[in-house]
Simulated scan of single mutants.
Amino acid sequence: MRIYTKAGDDGTTGLFLGGRVSKADVLVDACGDVDEAVAVLGTARALCADERLAAILFDRQRELFVVAADLATNPAHRDRRTPGVSQVTREMVDGLESLIDTLVAERPLRPVFIVPGSTQVSAAVDHARTVIRRAERHVVQAAEAGHEVSPLALEYLNRVSDLVFVVARHAAGEVEEPPSHD
């Protein structure tokens, strides 16, 4: 099986369920950001010795595939999306909120700015958070440019960045700042 199709040689990319769009389209930027976030979360997961946090990261990677499919669906066929597979659901967003609440109860957040880099895992998770925030901005731009964007996909991205922030704090452990060199 060949990996190359040559279909994108004209500067377009395929949408889920048919159709093509320019690779320079802001919707493609959003999908690329989601793809990048999945990869960065994979880096964090590969570094993570904590099985619980690794499972949380893996589950987010899988859910971000759903977000990407939702965003990349041909507008004429959005009615053919499958909830939880190619369509973001309310349950996905609610699940994030529940997990955030659980993790914050276990490790209350400190009211200070955190400089990323306490651990390799927390740094990679913080990197993923910034990519997710960029994806969120591109989704807003895509909606403003006239693309049909699921409000739940946008809400999911907003909430998953909050969760990833909390996961980074867990991954950082008790020591979140390096000692001062004064």
Rank of each mutant, 00 (worst) to 15 (best):
R159W: 09
G42F: 07
S161D: 07
L103P: 04
D50Y: 05
R159N: 05
S122A: 09
F16P: 08
D182C: 08
A44L: 06
L41H: 00
G146S: 01
V160T: 14
A171F: 11
D101Q: 12
L64H: 08
V131D: 04
L71G: 11
R2L: 13
G18V: 04
I3W: 07
D33H: 02
A30H: 06
A68M: 14
A145H: 00
R134F: 00
V160C: 09
A76G: 11
A49Q: 14
G8V: 07
L27Q: 06
A172D: 12
V85D: 10
R137M: 01
Q87A: 14
A69H: 06
R20F: 00
V66C: 06
T73L: 00
R20L: 02
V26N: 02
A123N: 08
G14F: 07
G18Q: 05
G8R: 01
T119W: 09
Q87I: 14
P75E: 02
A135R: 06
R80T: 12
V88P: 05
V66G: 05
V131I: 13
V28Y: 00
E177S: 09
T89M: 07
E148I: 08
H77V: 11
R134Y: 01
L17K: 08
D29I: 07
V28C: 01
N158R: 03
P83C: 11
V115K: 15
V115T: 15
S86C: 07
D79R: 13
L15R: 08
L157F: 01
R62E: 05
G146Y: 00
T12H: 05
R2V: 11
T102V: 12
V85G: 05
D10F: 10
A168T: 13
Q120I: 03
A24Y: 03
Y4A: 14
T12A: 09
G32L: 04
Q61G: 03
E63M: 13
G42V: 05
S122L: 04
P116L: 07
R133E: 02
D25R: 00
E148R: 15
I114R: 10
M1T: 11
V28T: 04
L99D: 12
P108I: 12
R110P: 13
D126E: 09
G32Y: 01
V131W: 06
L109E: 12
R169Q: 14
A69N: 09
S98K: 15
T13S: 10
R110M: 15
A105H: 07
H127T: 14
R2T: 15
T102S: 12
C31F: 03
H181Y: 15
V166F: 09
A44E: 06
P151A: 02
G117K: 07
R133Y: 13
A123F: 06
V26A: 07
V93L: 11
A143Y: 01
V104D: 10
T82A: 12
A7T: 14
G146W: 00
F65G: 10
E91V: 03
R52Y: 13
A55Y: 01
H170N: 02
L109D: 10
V66Y: 01
N158V: 03
D25S: 03
S118T: 04
T13V: 04
E136W: 01
G95Q: 05
D70L: 05
D33N: 08
R60D: 13
E144G: 00
A69F: 01
T119F: 12
L41A: 03
L15N: 08
R62D: 12
Q141I: 01
A72F: 00
R133M: 10
D29A: 11
R62I: 10
I132W: 04
D182N: 06
D126A: 02
